[in-house]
Write a protein that binds this DNA or RNA. Sequence first.
DNA 1: TCTGACTACTCAGATTCTTGACTATGGAGG
DNA 2: CCTCCATAGTCAAGAATCTGAGTAGTCAGA
Lengths: 199, 199
Amino acid sequence: MALRHAVLAALLDGEFSGYQLAKGFDIGVANFWHALPQQLYAELSRLESDGLVAGREVVQDGRPNKRMFRVTDAGVAELERFAAAPAKPSFIRDDLLVKVQAVDGVDAAPVIAQLQERAAVAEAKAEVLGKLLRRLRGDLDEAEFLLAGQRIGPYLTCQRGLAFERETREWCLRTAELLERRESARRAPSGSARRGQGG
Amino acid sequence: MALRHAVLAALLDGEFSGYQLAKGFDIGVANFWHALPQQLYAELSRLESDGLVAGREVVQDGRPNKRMFRVTDAGVAELERFAAAPAKPSFIRDDLLVKVQAVDGVDAAPVIAQLQERAAVAEAKAEVLGKLLRRLRGDLDEAEFLLAGQRIGPYLTCQRGLAFERETREWCLRTAELLERRESARRAPSGSARRGQGG
DNA sequence: TCTGACTACTCAGATTCTTGACTATGGAGG
DNA sequence: CCTCCATAGTCAAGAATCTGAGTAGTCAGA
């Protein structure tokens, strides 16, 4: 029962269709909640039948009709209840970390490759988040915006997401480099294990 | 199908009972995988019937018997397969971030309290992880251990966990402080600041 | 005209995770 | 004696999530 609140929180920024949320979940809200389109559609239906969001059919021509949703007063009240209730501890789940944990027992090469790939993904995400932050604060500087802005929630969560992605990138690069050095030392185990990585 | 690999990776460090894993999952592996005891017991049974781990009954007196598990060759092969397969992108799910995202629409006070509590939890976790890192590297310094150590996987994942907890702590404290400043500004509007709606 | 991509959404089924029990023994504290 | 706590697990039900497919119209390109 928490995707529900992530959706409500996302809808505080305006009126969105399920499809739009499904796209946008990758950028903003996905920093702290990940969901597939099917889940979003299902959750929106449940939220609507519970009266926490209101949907309205938008007839389009040239493309399928869509349903736009906004949070109702009951929805805000539900968020209020949720915000005041004790939070469950967060958790990360990451395949790649499992692989690094196991790296001493398995072939390191594919793990190194995945670390480099993940570093690139994290860098791309960090860039997107950086742009989003600039867009959110407009022409104010950060401190000013945070004190005076009337919608700072998304900004704060994006800050956290950005720090996370940067940290991820740094760690992935450091770790990949280290594992590579160990690999080449292993392949040439003499006293002069100083040669660069071959390829 | 990935708790399975987290368990296998954890068992690379030695022989453990389900109970021990359930306790220990909080410190080491929990940085990237979170699981309840029931899941671990169930997963260990499945792993055993799939031949990926081997269990042995240890008769104790004064306390219940237990079953200790270790990874089999087939288990290592399975980890090898897993490590070489493409990793799914990681995800975070965090109630508290949802609350911060929604903070403009709800009462900020309980969110501030939870941010402070989370900061304290993160600090405690960071301390535990720092100790674990020192224990893992023994009397070597970090660079030396990472190049020469024969079991560095857990060290690397702990590094990542430590950075994450520190980042979490910093962000929580910054965010709590900011929200507090805004709260007190809202309660005592200086100059000609326009009044917001009451609590 | 056929293929594929994009918008917009729905359904069914399987797997995974969480909640909340329950069994059983031994020791500490009141 | 009774209760609480720790060890060491097991079971069952339900919620949440993921996999995979289907529907249906529009538009662009080969």
